[in-house]
Design a protein around this nucleic acid. Structure first.
Lengths: 199, 199, 199, 199
DNA sequence: AATGAATGAGAGTTCATTCAT
DNA sequence: TATGAATGAACTCTCATTCAT
């Protein structure tokens, strides 16, 4: 549903989120002040507190929302009936495609973990674990069915995630390679890494 | 008290570096104060300035020294006469072995880049580029000689580096897997990723 | 506590200016801290920054405002149609009367010049030059018309200004001499110094 | 007597005094640090404490020594047998000649009074009072003998001193006017100011 | 007499946060 | 809901001074 007319508050909150996201990604949570966020959107620092109780809530929100959107997007796209090979390709393509679209969110979700208070940290870690488990299950299934040669699926999961997420650190929409081409390259490399049998 | 017997400047500077390294890695450069660093080693914050002109110099120093040690270590170990396959295996083993030994340095060298001032950033980036080029050259040579199947060596370089460096984020000396085993696993995955021909 | 009822920004800024003026005059700009200024008026040092961006701005403001008030006051009182003798008397009386009323401003405007940053210094110097030129013109006119005997009007200008401004360093409202009497004494001495012809 | 060979200490103390004098005059006592003084002469700040117990002593020393040298110089030159007119001319010439030679000393002796601790302040004030009294006595004698027309010798004393000392603020050795010419101009103006009878 | 390293205080300034308006 | 002004704590960095060497 579209946002109700007159619901200015939610719009402001969104502007704050957006500004914070961009600033946190660029300079880091600790180095960005509430004043800076406010300035970015023509607001006094104090006004932000009408929308977010603390700076920490703002950070937590950005990370939780990102992780939940990611999980939802993957849930919407995943097809658990696919065999491991196809499932892995789907995951790789999804991960790259989704992550390059929200580089800032990805970046802060990795970089600012240590600035989360204990409880918030656990919450995010649990969400991340759930997402990475999607890949873990695929690799395990492939190993079980002997279509992949992964002697240690847990290590393989982390290796693949690291490799994939690395894309966000250099991808540029106007870069040398199209997104499609990049996906293809990574599908190729990861297929090789997990020893995917040709058929 | 003016000076503790036996405690000389270089030792203090080292203690500062060590404390800063650990704190920066744990909480982030921006979130760590000079007081905190001092407290860690029983020093007033102001005394740190006898050894480092600014907090930024301290950070730059940690990163430059790490990168230079890394480059020197690799220069000492590399053997440019090795054929691509053996060279890649050597690089993978070296990278993992070296990086897990200095997780904090690696971590801040990636995480705190944005907290470097322009000039220092360029300096570190150049050092990193030189290191990563070592891998790049191996992959290019392998591609040229058709012993690897990498359709885009530049992307492959970044993918491999990302995968490898990811190890530092979960490796524990007392973990489930020995370092030797981990190296072996990554040699396997990366060989697959670059389509290394069996012979 | 957030805001005291009835206390608005402009009032606070004025209180800060007043406190700073008095403290700078008594102890010198460099020797007065923002905390000291705040303490004087029951404010945290940080709160001063809601009204003045830096300590230097605060100083510049005090000096610029003083000089502009002085120039305006003289512009309101001067009468360019007066012949040199009467004009000089008017200037002397004005200068003394105006300056003893704002001893602190006068004091810091002379004493703190070296604590002004380059640009601010030039600005103040230009204002001072304009004011002193008023006297210079009178002396030059008098010399031209041969009603004064000043062989070097530029030196005479500086001599007269120095003599006049010296009053602020010892004048006390409850002192031995009335302001009227002091003006009279200086009119006499300065008339003599410039060799004013009796008629 | 010439300084003994090997008396390095006194030479260092002199270098410190010289550096401090120049820096205090340029930037003000409060704005100059012991490190800055040391740096100027290739010394660590701590070493200064081998020669002066505190920064305050250093300042006091500079001012006391200046005032005593001034008094001694005047004592050597004064001739109490001169009649008031000649005595005034002698004083004027002496004051200008002496003061332009030590602009820094004069400057800090006026500017840094407020940075002196109570006791040191009184000491300097007393020395200054003694010097200015020299002029006061001349003016009083001249008034008594009716060779000057000064209705208030105390005010006249301050006026003349202010006028004379002002010279140091603009005099440049390579300026438009020779020192001799400047002395002459001031003798003229001051003679007029005190209503000196032609004979 | 000088150095280099330290202390403890304090500088100017910024911070997250609060709250009367 | 936003502002502007405030708090109190914290920041990086510099200070005068001390003292073992």
């Amino acid at each position: 549903m579209a946002r109700k007319v007159g619901s200015i508050g939610a719009e402001t909150a969104d502007k704050v989120r957006l500004a914070a996201l961009s600033l946190f990604a660029r300079y880091g949570y600790a180095a960005v002040s509430m004043r800076q966020i406010g300035r970015e959107i023509g607001l006094q620092a104090g006004a932000i507190y009408n929308h977010f109780p603390t700076k920490q809530h703002l950070l937590r929100g950005l990370m939780v929302e990102h992780m939940e959107r990611l999980l939802n997007a993957w849930d919407a796209e995943r097809d658990d009936s696919l065999p491991p090979r196809e499932a892995l390709v789907a995951f790789v393509r999804f991960h790259i495609r989704y992550h390059v679209k929200c580089g800032d969110e990805v970046f802060i979700s990795y970089m600012e973990l240590r600035n989360l208070e204990e409880e918030n940290f656990s919450e995010i870690e649990e969400l991340r674990r759930r997402y990475e488990q999607s890949l873990g299950r695929i690799l395990e299934a492939g190993a079980r069915e002997k279509v992949f040669t992964v002697s240690d699926p847990r290590v393989a999961t982390m290796a693949v995630i690291a490799m994939l997420t690395g894309v966000t650190s250099w991808y540029r929409p106007d870069g040398r390679l199209s997104l499609e081409k990049i996906e293809e390259l990574y599908v190729g490399m990861i297929s090789g890494a997990v020893g995917m049998k040709e058929n």
